[in-house]
């Protein structure tokens, strides 16, 4: 749905006013309602489906595989995004893929993958597959929420063989029934639109059209972490922004991320 020049101009003015007036009446830090369901794919170790009020929808599956980390020492979490209607090598898909791999990069502070180690030789590798069924704006934030929900409900087979297998090799064997909660908290990604001097969380597609710039902020375990990026949301209004807005943006996320987390957990 495209807006006319006059509409855009009106929208820009109201969004950059202080306080900003969003067309759907939200506060700058307010999210649109989302609907999340988890564990609906029994074949996967964890799954979630998230639907935004504009009809954007994304499905995440987490599957595990036992690997020999002495041979295969890639990251233990591998994420792949598939956006309906987009080729796998399209720019959107590739940029989201690369951003997500950075977000899910194992890191002792934010994403502690030591929980995935089974024995001295073997680990679980998690495959996080994201299917974006439909989206009307950049789905990165939605995806990160879906991944968070999927990972936090992921259960993995329970190891019953020994831990030390370096000298005398044992193949890991697992309990035939029990699954253990992984309890891995993945980072959340927030997308803010910069309009004038205002920062708007979770911009709707019409807000995209007039944003001067976009800011991607990653948040994990109570604090903002990397990657933090800017992203151009349209071709017409894009321009630079005041460095102080960056700090403001981070602060906004720090203030409200916990609410989002609580909403996701409930």
């Amino acid at each position: 749905m495209s807006l006319s020049v006059a509409e855009k101009s009106y929208l820009y003015d109201s969004l950059s006013a202080f306080p900003a007036i969003r067309p759907d009446g939200r506060k700058p830090y307010q999210f649109r309602p989302i609907e999340i369901s988890t564990d609906f794919l029994p074949n996967s170790n964890g799954s979630s489906r998230i639907i935004a009020s504009d009809g954007s929808e994304c499905i995440v599956s987490v599957k595990s595989k036992v690997i020999d980390h002495t041979i295969d020492n890639d990251d233990l979490i591998k994420v792949e995004v598939d956006i309906a209607g987009q080729r796998d090598d399209s720019a959107v898909v590739e940029s989201i893929n690369s951003l997500l791999s950075k977000v899910l990069k194992p890191n002792a502070d934010t994403l502690d993958t030591s929980k995935l180690q089974l024995t001295k030789k073997y680990s679980f590798k998690l495959y996080v597959d994201v299917l974006v069924l439909s989206s009307y704006s950049n789905p990165i934030s939605l995806i990160s929420f879906a991944i968070y929900s999927a990972l936090s409900t992921t259960t993995l087979p329970k190891l019953v063989s020994g831990f030390d297998d370096l000298e005398v090799e044992e193949l890991p064997t697992f309990h035939d029934y029990d699954l253990v909660n992984l309890e891995l908290k993945s980072p959340l990604v927030f997308l803010l639109a910069l309009v004038g001097d205002n920062l708007l969380i979770d911009p709707a597609s019409n807000e995209y059209e007039v944003a001067n710039n976009g800011l991607i902020v990653t948040w994990c375990n109570g604090k903002v972490t990397g990657p933090i990026r800017t992203i151009s949301l349209n071709n017409f209004y894009s321009k630079g922004f005041d460095a102080s807005l960056l700090g403001k943006g981070i602060k906004l996320v720090e203030e409200h991320a916990n609410d989002v987390l609580q909403a996701l957990e409930s």
Partner: peptide, 17 residues
Amino acid sequence: VNITKFSKMERSKSSHK
């Protein structure tokens, strides 16, 4: 027809496109 990589018990490496 998009058969997702996670649709079977074992995850498939290729997207089936």
